[in-house]
Design a protein around this nucleic acid. Sequence first.
DNA 1: TGCCTTTTTGAAAAATATTTTCGAACTTAT
DNA 2: ATAAGTTCGAAAATATTTTTCAAAAAGGCA
Lengths: 280, 280
Amino acid sequence: MHDFLVQLKIYKPNLSRQETKLADFLQTHPDRASQANIAELSTMTGVSTATISRFAKALGYPNFQALRMALVQSPPEPDQTLFAELSPDDSVETLAQKIFTSNIDALRTTLANLNAAALAKAVNWITHADRLGLFGLGASNLVALDGYHKFLRTAIPVAYAADYHMQLMAATHLGVNDAMILTSHSGEDKDAIALADLAKQQHVPLIVITGAPASRLAKMADAAFVAVAEESRYRTEALHALIAELSLMDTLFMISAIQTNSQTAPLFRRVRATIDATRQ
Amino acid sequence: MHDFLVQLKIYKPNLSRQETKLADFLQTHPDRASQANIAELSTMTGVSTATISRFAKALGYPNFQALRMALVQSPPEPDQTLFAELSPDDSVETLAQKIFTSNIDALRTTLANLNAAALAKAVNWITHADRLGLFGLGASNLVALDGYHKFLRTAIPVAYAADYHMQLMAATHLGVNDAMILTSHSGEDKDAIALADLAKQQHVPLIVITGAPASRLAKMADAAFVAVAEESRYRTEALHALIAELSLMDTLFMISAIQTNSQTAPLFRRVRATIDATRQ
DNA sequence: TGCCTTTTTGAAAAATATTTTCGAACTTAT
DNA sequence: ATAAGTTCGAAAATATTTTTCAAAAAGGCA
């Protein structure tokens, strides 16, 4: 329930002297500490059982045993070195591990932050759309292109363009019975916002994939999906987010495909075959 | 220490009636059980505290609390449903989880299968290349395009084209002091092999990103990187592999960038800034 | 600084939780 | 059907945790 390290962080500012001593011990020897009962822990740390009991409650646990359980459950802290800044001194192997770890982490956090209600709405718009517009500028165009490759093989007609002006023209043809998936990492790119404005004017349901939940674009969206990647991590957050953004597109596609297919069994097999054929 | 499920298996043959009742409850509600103290567990299960205490010792734990801890630590059996076929009956949430899980899994396996020696070689060719050709057809073109977006901002000159014939023309200009990164998921596409043939003829170091380690293309490569995604998993392995292939490209790029940058500090800062600017 | 208030702390008492004892109920073997 | 062994829970015994209370330490203020 309450992760020990999290609880500790919350309470940290008001730690007294004995409590600090105790907290330090718990952090450095979580294994030994979780084995011991309150009396043994008292001897180990030189802190009275009374204080230990009170400490547990202060952290928000109902009793000492609950703290013990939290301690034992608290995930072994992830290999910090894998989350460190890439360094020219790292071996090629370490660098690869760090990069993959960041990507995996981006996917995990993105999934955790995924809004199921928005997803259901978006899928509904997509599957019922007469046409689906896929747009994105710069590196985000990759996400749109990926979606294009995927949706091209389904029964849903798609509109895509690499060039901004072509995207604008394509977007002009969309209406209330269509849908638009627009990707922009910053969510503030003015061309992307122009596309979103167009969608709003024409009452096209607007699905946004972005890295910035508070951006103008996210606020304009009828359904927004946020690709989360650690900002601080050696400044290439934008690069890792791409993977997460593609996974979001992948999710929109797969669910839409599954749901349209389930309606008609023969079509199901056909589209499934085309999914397989999507790549060579 | 002693995993609960393992201990239970050992003791299973000599479980009495009440103990079976208890064991069943612990297995089906490990969460509720581990929250409760011995008295609460007694009420939940209809087994006396005496029997519960004896049960704990019978399984080899020194006391009831130790059993509780083991219970809470016992790795929750991996949610098999998350690796199952996507089903139209799944909730949107479950579908999303399955898709992300597959993607994460693809990254993990790909990392585990990564050949560090090949990576070092490839990075060396890339950083010393006069020109870097980035090619790929169909959906694999996305990987090439992603690489193009990335390498474009470094000091390494890049050649990319969306169209196959343009790719052929660009490849004709590469020589022994250049490098080519060619992506093909199947590794058997004839156009991709034609590009590889060209590279061989002109002695261009050939770096291949593929999903098929035994393919013709992989065998032709001077350094091959394999994106692994579970074949069996609802037939869309090719889609999940894309993420892994992009991560491989990402890795080639990041390591190359780091290594060229570390040589000249001022350039380092500049290229790092451009990495940030890669996305908008 | 010195006085007062508040906070922290541990010893011991009180409250809780767990284990063991003990005898009854149930099984199994003869 | 009876004896021997086993299982089991109530209650006693023990162990553990929490709370109380008073002393010590820290903080605030004239």
